[in-house]
Amino acid sequence: MTQLAELNTAVNALNNLWPLLSGDEKNRVLEQRNELNIKADELAVKTLLEGTAEIEQAVAQLNETTQAAIEAKDAIAVDVARIEKVADTVAKATQAVSKLAEVLLRLS
C-alpha cells in the first residue's frame, strides 16, 4: 500500500507540473508521469487480484464457517422432515383405522 500511495503522490505531483511546460521538457515529464501511472495501475491491479495473506486466511475461515452454517441448516431440515414424517404416519394410521371402521359399520 505504501508503494502505491507513493506512486500516486508522484503522479499527482507531476500532473501539477507538466501542464506548465512545453516542448521536449513537457514530453519528458509527461513520459515520466505515464511511466509512474502505469506502475501504479499495475500495482493496484496486483493488489486487487492477489489480496493479502491475511485476507485469504479470513476468506478461508469464513468459508469454513459458512459451510458449518449450511450443514447445521441441512441437519435441522432433516429433523423437520422426520417430525413431519411421524405426524404424517400417525395421520395415515388414523385414516386407515377410520376406513376400517367404515367397512365394519357397513358389515354390521
Binding site: 500500500m1 502505491l4 500511495a5 500516486n8 503522479v11 499527482n12 500532473n15 501539477n16 507538466w18 501542464p19 508521469r33 501511472n37 501504479a40 495501475d41 493496484a44 493488489t47 486487487l48 489480496g51 493479502t52 485476507i55
Partner: peptide, 20 residues
C-alpha cells in the same frame, strides 16, 4: 485497504491525469 486504499486513490489519480 481495497476500496479506499487501492480503488479510491487510483480513481483520484486517474481523474487528475485527465484534469491535467
Amino acid at each position: 485497504e481495497l476500496l479506499s486504499g487501492v480503488i479510491e486513490s487510483r480513481l483520484y489519480a486517474m481523474r487528475g491525469n485527465e484534469l491535467a
